[in-house]
């Protein structure tokens, strides 16, 4: 993430709480066509368990077929908050700016999520909730599912966009074949 971009984004937030909230909520939907779309549990061909550690995933990469729906069971086995997010590298980069704000607003604090802060009304009924269907944000010990139907886009990664984690290498390739 470039800092100038972040500053622009930060300035935008200061001007408009709506933009901020829309940014966090919109991410998954706007780019759905690129990385796939939310899947139905009944259509899932298989379950992949993804364990999140500090700061890496196991497995480190996965292979899917074009159009396949996968049920991911994501478990945070580390001591820090981690994300599992399916998207293109560009989407992750954009999302990292939002996550940086969540850190700066005290939503993500090392090993804890400040749920009150996430629920807080940012104006216009928007909040800093992290509830896109393509991702989960988990505290240590938490476990959640993501059901995702992949497209034929082969430029997809699953990634943790908690500040610094992606840069440290916490991402894996989704090989579509």
């Amino acid at each position: 993430m470039t800092v100038s971009k972040f500053l622009v984004a930060a300035a935008t937030i200061l001007l408009s709480a709506t933009t901020f909230a829309a940014g966090i909520h919109g991410g998954g939907h706007d780019h759905g066509a690129a990385s796939g779309e939310p899947g139905k549990a009944s259509e899932a061909s298989r379950t992949i368990t993804v364990e999140m550690y500090d700061n890496y995933y196991e497995p480190g990469s996965i292979i899917v077929s074009p159009g396949e729906t996968v049920r991911f069971v994501v478990e945070n086995k580390g001591n820090l908050v981690h994300e599992f997010n399916i998207g293109t590298p560009e989407m992750h980069e954009g999302h990292q700016e939002e996550m940086m704000m969540m850190v700066e607003h005290g939503v993500i604090q090392g090993g804890k999520l400040n749920h009150d802060m996430m629920e807080m009304d940012m104006g216009n009924g928007q909040s800093m909730k992290h509830d896109d269907p393509n991702s989960v944000l988990l505290e240590p010990g938490q476990r959640q599912e993501v059901i995702w139907k992949f497209s034929d886009n082969s430029n997809i990664e699953f990634a943790c966009n908690v500040p610094g984690h992606y840069q440290a290498g916490m991402y894996g390739d989704v090989k579509v074949q």
Binding site: M1, T2, V3, L80, P163, H165, Q167, A168
Partner: peptide, 19 residues
């Protein structure tokens, strides 16, 4: 280049990206 600091004085730190 962004630099992501991962260790200070030999000890792992929570990664932080800096210029």
């Amino acid at each position: 280049l962004d630099m992501t600091v991962v260790q200070a004085d030999g000890n792992n730190v929570q990664p932080v990206s800096v210029d």
